[in-house]
């Protein structure tokens, strides 16, 4: 890629490569304590405690899913109530039109349907997926990030970013290599 020629303006960040999840965990902790805020780690599998080490806020996905689940329950119930009592009442053996016990199954299914698709699709959307291009893929040998490589990237957008300082800091965390990442 353009790693060698990119100037400071075309710089996305500086990235360090590690061999184990423990190393990236220690490095992320150190970077947070050093005052860096705009950074992210890239790992082949979820690493427990990495979000705390990076100082990431907890995700509020659960509340979104709960809200949509409740909406689904209301919508599912409303659909049946409206159709069975208002729009298309069916007299079946004189039973009450608004017979809620028979609405339970569909209400539950619609709840699960909306909650599940909210969980899946909102997660993708908040992660910015699908996204064909991301600057971090400019890192040389970044194929390791989905195999057995663990990366910590301090981004140029960080208010305390200075390429020399960041490189020096990352080299002090015992990485395998440190790369510039072109935008």
């Amino acid at each position: 890629m353009t790693t060698a020629t990119a100037g400071a303006a075309g710089l996305y960040g500086v990235i360090a490569e590690y061999d184990t999840p423990e190393q990236v965990l220690v490095a992320a902790e150190a970077a947070r304590k050093a005052g860096y805020t705009r950074m992210d780690a890239y790992t082949p599998h979820p690493v427990e405690g990495l979000d705390d080490a990076l100082g990431l806020a907890p995700t509020n996905l659960g509340f979104v899913v709960l809200a949509m689940g409740l909406f689904g329950a209301a919508a599912g119930y409303f659909l049946q109530w409206y159709s069975a009592t208002v729009f298309y009442p069916l007299n079946i053996g004189g039973r009450p039109l608004h017979d809620w016990p028979t609405y339970v199954v569909i209400t539950f299914e619609v709840t699960v349907l909306l909650a599940a698709f909210t969980a899946g699709l909102v997660m993708l959307a908040r992660n910015g997926l699908p996204r064909p291009y991301h600057p971090v893929f400019n890192t040389p040998g970044f194929e390791r990030a989905t195999r057995d490589g663990y990366y910590l990237c301090i981004e140029a957008a960080d208010p305390r970013f200075d390429e020399g300082d960041v490189r020096g800091f990352l080299e002090g965390t015992a990485p395998v290599a440190v790369h510039r990442v072109a935008r």
């Binding site: 992210d40 780690a41 979820p46 979000d51 992660n127 971090v136 990030a145």
Partner: peptide
């Protein structure tokens, strides 16, 4: 376009 970022993994 999955890149395995920590924030992405958290969500």
């Amino acid at each position: 376009g999955w890149n395995g970022s920590a924030k992405a993994w958290q969500r």
